[in-house]
Design a protein around this nucleic acid. Structure first.
Lengths: 255, 255
DNA sequence: CTCACTACGTACGATAACGTACAAAAAACA
DNA sequence: TGTTTTTTGTACGTTATCGTACGTAGTGAG
């Protein structure tokens, strides 16, 4: 059991209100078109939402939790190339028209999502071009994130990369607790588990995070930010346009 | 002067015929709509085609040479996140609707391109939805490449990454000579110049490449391929759909 | 309560890559 | 032609990270 109060599995702050930033920034008109097709689904830990090169049956707007897009090779394990949370969605290949997943997508921190079948979404997109435009703009965020991660992996030390990941994840969950193991972080960053443990111990000694078996608590976000490389800011800045858009309180059936 | 015959700056094999694979796989109907707007332009070494976060004035379909999309931070130099050649184009943000460049784009190996202004391309896209679909599908290739580079940077040794880059570049030029300096390769891969020199010396000792000041010749492509990591194949495979499409011989004014 | 299992702390030598530096060779320039 | 600049070869000590391994402490199952 978690020693920390795990706020990430709590009910969303406002029950029945859409938490997803992508959806809440849609115009009421566009969202109304989408609403009848959306269904709440649980994202269970380590669940594979999409498999690389396989057809995308449905698109998921993340309501809570964190999902990773990962790249793989035969010999190496999976490495995260982008992180998606309340601000985003999984299944962009529907907007791109191929309906084939680019990468494996895995649930890192459990939560919920609003699901719509690919065909339904396609139909709505045809009717509402603004929705497609919104999706395409979101794709730029993802591309930017992937590119920055590529640079970060090439140039920055493990502790900086770890700090970046923790900050991005922190932004995407409710509360300060991240229910992640060192092992998971190691896989995600493509490094040794031991390296993650060492870096986290250093952070804990400086009072930046507090550790528990299976979970981390961010105690001093500002200090963590000064540990991270510029990449965090660069990735985060691109979400500015999403944050800048007016956010609506859309209701959704919790069934 | 180059000791090797530098075939990359020769006139294209068939003068007046479009070399760009993206264009040559368009339907005659769609291409005809585009043709009047296309102008041949030179890509000069180190020229910056697009600057990150700046408006995209025009889109470039690469005819010859190699162009890199690079990510940057204040403190680190630029690192390549994707490579574009005869098979692709620069300026996807026009297809995504934002008209703002995601990354800096730099000419690595000089060549030529077919240029169309962003507004003209937008107009053609509206008239010909198939063109937009084609563009969006191409974006998946780029995303895949970025993701694989992210993994590669995290997990693979310098010599394997170098081999991957050389293979990708080799696929994108005419002939076996790559007019690149060690310095450029180092920047591109995000490593020391000395590391590149060492790796190349090793390759030369094994008869895989031949070196000259400012240029490399791929002597044994098969051997090079067995030096590279899986990432080359993974990136290259995604171009399968482009290669699979029928290719037309479209004429273009060389003025 | 015991047992098995997962998560974490920590240690060791090995090695890939780093930063830096300097000189030689080739090309460009004047 | 001589001079400057660019490119490359090579070396040194240093550091980050690796692979591996083993012990320990929580956690869950029976």
């Amino acid at each position: 059991m978690l020693t920390f109060r795990d706020r990430t599995t709590e009910a969303p702050p406002k029950a029945g209100i859409v938490q997803n930033r992508f959806l809440s920034t849609l115009s009421p008109d566009d969202f109304e078109e989408l609403r009848p097709f959306l269904r709440v689904v649980d994202l269970k830990r380590h669940a594979v939402i999409h498999e690389a090169n396989k057809p995308v049956e449905a698109v998921y707007f993340i309501e809570s939790g964190v999902v990773s897009r990962v790249a793989r090779t035969q010999t190496d394990g999976a490495v995260e190339v982008a992180m998606v949370g309340r601000t985003g969605l999984i299944g962009i290949s529907v907007a791109l028209g191929t309906m084939i997943a680019l990468h494996r997508t895995v649930v890192q921190i459990p939560g919920q999502a609003l699901r719509i079948s690919s065909t339904d979404l396609q139909r709505v997109m045809e009717k509402k071009p603004a929705l497609r435009d919104h999706l395409l703009r979101y794709i730029q965020l993802l591309m930017n994130q992937k590119a920055q991660v590529a640079l970060c992996n090439a140039k920055h030390e493990i502790d900086k990369r770890l700090a970046r990941w923790l900050l991005l994840a922190h932004d995407r969950v409710v509360g300060d607790v991240l229910p992640v193991t060192h092992d998971l972080l190691a896989m995600t960053l493509g490094v040794r588990r031991a390296s993650v443990s060492e870096a986290l111990s250093k952070f804990e000694a400086e009072g930046i995070v507090a550790k528990t078996r299976g979970a981390l608590k961010i105690s001093n976000r500002d200090a963590l930010q000064s540990c991270a490389c510029e990449c965090y800011r660069i990735i985060d800045d691109r979400f500015g346009w999403l944050r800048a858009l007016p956010s609506h309180e859309y209701k959704i059936d919790n069934t």
